[in-house]
Amino acid sequence: MKTKLIVLVLLIISATGFAQNGEQTIDSTFELLKAQKNISYFDVTGEMFKMLSETKETEAEFKDYMRKLTGMKMVRTYNRHDNGTPDIYKLFMQNTNLKGFSRLMTSETSTRKISFYQKKSKAGNEYLLVQSSAIIYITGTIDLKSISEFEQVMNIAGSAFDM
């Protein structure tokens, strides 16, 4: 019982460990990150998603996803053995104000750290995946379950989509 209590306290401490973040908005942190060395950047706007959801090229299975998305940004590192490649996990956490976001979970091993965040509002949901090699920011009316199911959707419909 005592051990369980200690573990519980540890979990709560780690869950609140990210209370201290920076002051920048997510968008401005992405601007900061994309200016770093060895970074690739990808940004899709709501207008583009609207177009993707309306085009005949899009398979039915994916159309619903496109309809529910209003924004997507991703930064990725490449050439990680170059000393100039930044630790984007650290940079993101230090600079971004994540007020209003709830941390869903964090997993950390000797080589990998990953965190998931979510913010819900009437206007839509925001999801963040933060890891040392990539940061993904998704906005829209999509829910977490649909994002999780996407892997299965891809396995079924991916082949029809040339993926």
């Binding site: 990725r76 590192t77 490449y78 050439n79 990680r80 053995h81 080589t111 090699s133 891809m154 991916g158 993926m163």
Partner: peptide, 11 residues
Amino acid sequence: KKRELLNSDEN
């Protein structure tokens, strides 16, 4: 299928 997202220099 996702080879374009894979970094060859990562492990």
